[in-house]
Simulated scan of single mutants.
Amino acid sequence: MDRGGLWMAFGAFVIWGLMPLYWHLLKSVPSLQIVLHRVVWGAVLVAAWLFWKRGRHWIRDVLAQPRLAWLLALSGVFIALNWGLYIWAVNAGHVVETSLGYFINPLLNVVIGVVFLRERLNPAQWTSVGIAALGVLWLTFNYGSFPWIALTLACSFAMYGVIRKIAAVDAIPGLGIESLYLLLPATLALGWFEAQGQGGFFGHWSLGIDALLVVGGALTALPLIGFSYAVRRIPLSVVGVMQYLAPTLQLLIGVLVFGEPFGRDRVIGFVLIWIALAVFAVDGYRRSRRRAVPAIV
């Protein structure tokens, strides 16, 4: 196994898992403006990297395919929705629920694969999805509120994944095109906030906050670049297990650092979802091992 790819995947998931701590540092900035800065500086970084590596070909190659261009515009909308809700939820005290969304996401990917891509589930996968559904229902009816943040995060990221699976484009150029689609609206929105005296560009907060807003763009792009590097070099079964590192860290931060409630009802709901994930992960690992064993003829 490629150790460089393993460390890249580990680093990407750790950064994603620790992001609530970073966004919490920007709590004084309105969540929408944090997202807009994240879009702008992420786009600048990714586009600069692609121009350095590939020149202008990566833009021309995508825009020459109208269907692909529209798909990436749509995926950009879903990832922007995901980012926006995530940052708002973190700074509104819902870190535990955001972690639930990313625990649910792999299982929701399976369901979407059945509905949209006509994939078939084996009994273990159906069992996993059913247990997870019980967990969500438990949280809904026993915790006292519908987990709309978790489900919206899971659905938006799952739809993003479906579109990116359909769109025949490499990960980083695809991210670059998505970012460029979002760049102009984000810049105009920041300009509007600036004109209204409600923030927007720099000078309204401390230099430290301004720097954090810029670095937030890098923290958007770098884990995605590292992840795309890793998935080409290590087995997807390993990536599939490691992906739970991020929501686990988010959950621990929400409970241990921010002091969010995690009583008996939440514990039961999360345990059901963790059992579903364990069934799902073990089944995936076994199937990958069977595919890896050469046939004896």
Score class of each variant (00 low, 15 high):
G216Y: 05
A221T: 15
Q198R: 13
G200F: 07
Q196L: 14
I209A: 07
A211G: 13
F202Y: 12
G191K: 05
A218Q: 04
Q198A: 10
G197M: 12
G199E: 10
G208D: 04
A211F: 05
H204F: 15
L188Y: 11
G200T: 09
D210A: 06
A189V: 12
W192A: 11
V215H: 04
L219P: 06
D210R: 02
W192T: 12
F193D: 13
L207Y: 13
A189M: 14
L212Y: 07
G200K: 03
L190T: 11
G191Q: 11
G216R: 01
G191W: 09
W192Q: 13
Q196C: 07
A189G: 08
A195S: 12
L188P: 07
G208K: 00
Q196W: 02
F193M: 15
A218L: 13
L212T: 09
T220S: 07
A218C: 09
T187C: 14
Q198H: 12
G199I: 13
T187S: 14
G199D: 06
G199N: 06
H204P: 02
L190H: 12
A189E: 09
P223N: 02
S206D: 06
A211Q: 13
A218R: 06
F193N: 14
W205E: 14
Q198F: 00
L212N: 09
S206L: 05
P223K: 02
L219D: 04
L219C: 01
G203A: 00
F202P: 12
G203N: 05
L213N: 00
G216M: 05
